[in-house]
Amino acid sequence: MDSVTLTEIKRQQKGWKEAFKYLETKSENVKVKFLKYKNRTWIFTGCGTSLYIAQTASYCFTKITGIQSKAVAASEVIISPEIVFPNDEFVLVPISRSGTTTEIVLAARKSGKEFSIPTIAVSCTSESELVGECDNAITFPFQREESVVMTGSFLTMLLSIIYLALELSEDTNEKLRSELTTLPDGSEKLMLSNELYIKEIACKLDLNEFVFLGQGPMYGLANEAALKMQEMTISVAQGYHTLEYRHGPKSTCAENTFAAVMLSDNGFDLEAKLIPELKDFGASTLVLYSDTEREHVNKADFKIEIPKGYSDLMKPFFYLPLLQLLGYYRAVAKGINPDSPKNLTQVVKF
């Protein structure tokens, strides 16, 4: 029997195509509903993986629209709402695969009922407690996952927020829109052509500390990749801003460390300088990058180049499926079943 986790990872690009078609039918409706919120600050919120979607989504949303936004853990919205909402000029976007996680439902309820903050749910479930609590919702029931570990739905929900940003932007963003249409096929081809290579890397890694590094839209991915490695392999894994790794975290970097660096075009020269430093500390390194091999990239132990011509905002759709596969195959190499992660359930309720 095939692993449901592996199935979810490998079918996600088909889900993006469905999502894109669905969103195209909602274009005018999106503008009518949400343009009135352009002068507010947007708060993207979630728990666990959904919080890391929020981190990447906030960066992409502000980059595309110019509208101020930030990512906040749902628990902070519940416990310190007066800090999150110092006035009523905000919009809350709660993100949840199931729409039933306790904190996200409470965050939406408190924001709307106690602070009169407009709420827009992003979820893979059309009829849920979260959707019922929110003023509006963008949902993708066809992307519902069977796996406990959340994989494919991450990028589908991120796609919806990027699409929303494009609709709210005053710029036509023709290049980004064009990139979106070719993403699914390009990402799937890259993932499948590198699957065996990633499996080989995972089998070679007799290591017990994993570090994932990224800047800008890749920072949320770094946190998410670390979480996937932790959930699936029961290993110590952490995510950091690439340049922040020098400020303390490098103290534990050694021969038992594996570091995956997701390079951006925007910060390539600064970020790539860390690669030889990681090697000097004894770490094994994987570098994900695009366009061309510049200085320092060749010093990595492993490297994967994504297709040329995609902006940094689109790189998550190439990078994350590869790192999800890495977590999956590392778990298999350790004799752990990724479909039954220790102490975890698909939905957190309390």
Rank of each mutant, 00 (worst) to 15 (best):
A222G: 07
S80C: 07
L278S: 11
A54V: 11
V211L: 03
A222P: 01
F140Y: 05
Y240R: 07
D135F: 07
S340I: 13
I304L: 04
P94T: 08
V72L: 06
Y163G: 15
L274K: 06
S111Q: 07
V84W: 15
I53G: 02
D185K: 06
P307V: 10
F281V: 05
P307D: 14
Y219H: 04
Q12A: 03
I78M: 07
K63N: 08
R40E: 14
P321D: 00
F115P: 08
Y329Q: 06
A121R: 13
G152T: 10
F90L: 03
I79W: 08
V77K: 14
S235D: 10
T233W: 01
V211W: 01
F142E: 12
G216F: 01
P307R: 10
T181H: 15
F350M: 06
N29W: 08
E82V: 10
A300R: 02
P307T: 11
I306F: 07
D301W: 09
T125I: 03
E28C: 00
S160F: 13
L159A: 15
K315Y: 00
S58N: 04
H296T: 14
I43W: 13
P338R: 00
L227C: 06
N337D: 15
S3P: 03
E146N: 15
E255V: 11
A260K: 02
R144F: 15
T49V: 00
L213W: 09
M150F: 09
W16F: 06
W16T: 02
T257W: 12
K315P: 07
L192Q: 10
H241D: 09
Q68F: 04
L35D: 08
I117D: 12
C134M: 07
T100P: 03
E224G: 03
V261K: 04
S75T: 13
Y240K: 06
A331E: 03
L159M: 15
V32A: 05
R97L: 11
A137V: 09
T7G: 05
A225E: 13
E170Y: 15
K21M: 12
S116M: 02
E18S: 05
Y197S: 01
E277Y: 09
L192V: 11
K189C: 09
G186L: 04
L159Q: 15
D2L: 08
H247L: 08
R177H: 14
V297G: 08
L51E: 02
Y289R: 04
R11A: 07
Q346C: 04
T242A: 02
F34K: 09
K33I: 03
F44D: 01
T65N: 13
V297N: 01
A19I: 12
S160P: 09
A333C: 09
P338Q: 04
A19Q: 09
A254M: 04
F317Q: 12
F44E: 07
I304T: 05
T49Y: 00
E188S: 12
K70G: 12
S27C: 04
P316L: 01
S340V: 14
E174S: 07
F281T: 04
S50G: 08
F44N: 05
V30E: 08
K303F: 00
M229I: 10
A137M: 11
S284M: 13
